[in-house]
């Protein structure tokens, strides 16, 4: 893997730090006029999601991390692993639940998502920004009540719970923004 000097650190660059793959967020050159030059780097650990700050001597380097984002299709859950496939090549990957984390509540069979691979092994899974999922449980609403006020919790087919307007009925399909977990609209079948 390539070696990157502090001069090459820029947002998005994937590097190895403390044996974990990380992404550079920000890199600031700090140099007292008469002193040692440093680079103060803000960096995200891609395994834990934690953001830390770390200072390097300018000119120091880190090994690049073999991290790529690949669009895949979610296939199924076998109880132990979740399985994904690259549509173009039919290559399949299996993921442990802990890699998937919070994303699991948005994953429906056959839906597409982004799998981040580190050394060809899944590191993280992110859902599409918008998903369309069926409501399996919510209080029956009042038909004709189309006002936006209030709202009620609704459980979706993947287990996610989102707040929906009162008029939305069990069995209906809704569009949700996975970044905020907010209801967007009903989807006509």
């Amino acid at each position: 893997m390539a070696i990157y000097s502090t001069n090459e650190f820029k947002a998005g660059l994937k590097v190895m730090l403390d044996n974990d793959p990380c992404a550079i967020i920000e890199n600031e050159f700090v140099k007292p006029g008469k002193g040692q030059a440093f680079n103060r780097v803000k960096i995200r650990n891609l395994k834990t999601g934690r953001v830390i700050e770390r200072t390097f001597k300018s000119g120091d380097s880190l090994e690049g991390a073999d991290v790529v984002d690949v669009a895949m299709q979610y296939l199924y859950n076998d109880g132990e692993f979740r399985h994904f496939m690259v549509p173009d090549t039919f290559e399949q990957y299996q993921c442990e639940e802990k890699v998937i984390g919070e994303t699991s509540k948005w994953l429906k069979d056959q839906d597409s998502c982004t799998v981040t691979l580190w050394n060809d092994a899944p590191l993280a899974v992110s859902p599409p920004n918008f998903v369309e999922l069926a409501i399996v449980e919510t209080d029956p609403g009042l038909r004709g009540d189309t006002s936006g006020g209030g709202g009620k919790p609704a459980t979706l087919e993947t287990g996610a719970v989102v707040r929906v307007p009162l008029f939305v009925q069990p069995g209906e399909i809704i569009k949700v923004d996975t970044r905020t977990g907010e209801y967007i609209s009903r989807v006509k079948e």
Binding site: V30, K31, P32, G35, Q36, F38, R40, R54, T55, F56, K57
Partner: peptide, 20 residues
Amino acid sequence: EAVSLCGSDHGLWLDFIFSH
């Protein structure tokens, strides 16, 4: 990280801590 970066170099420690 200053511990390994600066070692026993007093001047380097001062640069590090003062600037940060």
